[in-house]
Nucleic acid binder design. Sequence first.
DNA 1: ATGGCGGCAATGTGCCGA
Length: 258
Amino acid sequence: MKIATFNVNGINGRLPVLLRWLAEAAPDIVCLQELKTPAAKFPAAALADAGYQAVCLGQPRWNGVAILSRAGTIHETQRGLPHDPDPTQSRYLEAAIGGVIIAALYLPNGNPRPGPRFDYKLTWFEALIARAQFLMNSDAPVVLAGDFNVMPTDRDVYKPERWIEDALFAPEVRAAFARLIAQGWTDALRHVHPDATLYTFWDYLRDAYARDAGLRIDHLLLSPALVARLSAAGVDRHVRGWDKASDHAPTWIVLDDA
DNA sequence: ATGGCGGCAATGTGCCGA
């Protein structure tokens, strides 16, 4: 089973790129972020034509997450993050598919730091940690997938010294990510590629992609039972080079059958 | 320090992203 996460940065403007990548990569389950569209304008028919059923949590203009599946029926288990400090922001959707719980999340950016946006990021992170503990306690196989807006370590940033004060790399944020991991989650990409330089985002500005000035902020975290089933992981970074690309690249794992 | 790019809702331009 191939499971991917992709921040599309506008699902309607990105639809040709998304469909092209779905046809090429053939993932079974996909978590999408930054739909930037209300549910009424979610392109469900085009995705169904491509073979994917979908659940979506939309919102006009900003945020928005969805889960696509061609692997089995989507049984939604949670819509919105419990205790989200601002429930008007659509950032969390969770479903059971083929015996695995899939959580699609879009953690707040948090800039500028300090400020109310950064405070919201930290509060949202705490609510995520609480939900993740609940899922961990359930002993179900779980994948937490999405745009975490956190580079976990120095090797996940092209120039770490320039990002210390940024909300994506600040000590408090990395500490929160480390506490989440300490519940027992495995960072799948890093597990498969312990020493590789892996990025999932390149800014539109300053030729970031051409310079490979990237960040690794899109992650798939596995509950303990899934680690033994993890057989491959990667970033489809070439998709970032396509015309009308998102600033993120699709990131994926393959799990062997149970 | 600033602004560069890009999507969206909207037609002016501002907000947001990371």
